[in-house]
């Protein structure tokens, strides 16, 4: 079978280097126009007899509906439901990079975190306890220094393993009692719409609704409990 794996991460974390390493140029299929935000770049590679289709999503800091490229990434994950999302993180800028990771966790998709640029983190004097981080986030983590080629062989193994497992949903952001109650009320209403429940993670939908996310608002307006939902979030 072919696994579909998406590559995501902040800009300038070495995503392209990793993509080019996993899928050599000849096997890449690039979209039309260049520039900093590119249409998705795809490619196939084989590892241990399994075929993997790799899709390079635009580099973004978050996944809001306001920015075109972020919406592209988000829609891909929600609509295409890839077997795995590989989140590439700049180890020397952990806090900022983890924001995207947390957004991905909310999407309840399967994640493999790649801690890249660990050499730069070392230069900055950082020491990262990878096991602890992995445990707290609830997702597998692998370290690499893509520019030097370190860890890239192990990456292919990690991708296969992670793609075969199911998403862990332990790590959630706890928004505080009042907000969590609000979220649960919304989820109850959302549950009644079967189409929505099938397609999306309801908790994610609820949170997006609270954020008044444009795209989600549009989707909700067409659903059964539209008026009630809009009431709550206004």
């Amino acid at each position: 079978m072919t696994y579909t794996v998406a590559l995501i991460g902040n800009p300038n974390v070495g995503k392209s280097v990793i993509f080019n390493n996993l899928v050599p140029g000849a096997h890449q299929h690039v979209g039309n126009w260049p520039g900093k935000t590119v249409e998705k770049k795809e490619g196939k590679f084989t590892h241990k007899g399994k075929q993997i289709k790799l899709v390079d999503l635009p580099g973004t800091y978050s996944l809001t509906a306001a920015a075109e490229d972020e919406l592209i990434s988000r829609n891909f994950i929600v609509d295409e439901k890839p077997n795995l999302v590989v989140d590439i993180v700049d180890a020397s800028n952990l806090e900022r990079n983890l924001y995207l990771t947390y957004l991905l966790l909310e999407l309840e998709t399967n994640i493999l975190l790649v801690l890249n640029m660990t050499d730069i983190a070392e230069d900055k004097g950082y020491k990262i306890d990878v096991n602890k981080l992995s445990f707290q986030l609830g997702i597998p983590i692998i370290s690499t220094v893509a520019t030097k080629g370190t860890g890239l062989k192990e990456l292919k193994d990690a991708i296969l393993t992670a793609a075969n497992s199911s998403p862990q949903v332990n790590s959630k952001v706890y928004y505080g009692e009042k907000i969590e109650k609000l979220i649960n009320n919304i989820i109850v209403l959302l549950k009644k719409d079967h189409e929505l429940s099938q397609k999306y993670s309801l908790r994610w939908l609820a949170i997006k609704l609270l954020e008044k996310d444009e795209q989600i608002l549009d989707i909700i307006k067409k659903s059964k409990n539209a008026t009630e939902l809009l009431e709550i979030i206004s």
Partner: peptide, 26 residues
């Protein structure tokens, strides 16, 4: 709302990072 939720996320991130990241001298 977006800001409030984002803050909550950053709070979580900070807690996690505090336990797994040590910043030495630059």
């Amino acid at each position: 709302a977006e800001l409030v939720l984002a803050d909550a996320r950053y709070d979580s991130i900070n807690k996690v990072v505090k336990t797994s990241l040590i910043k030495g001298e630059r």
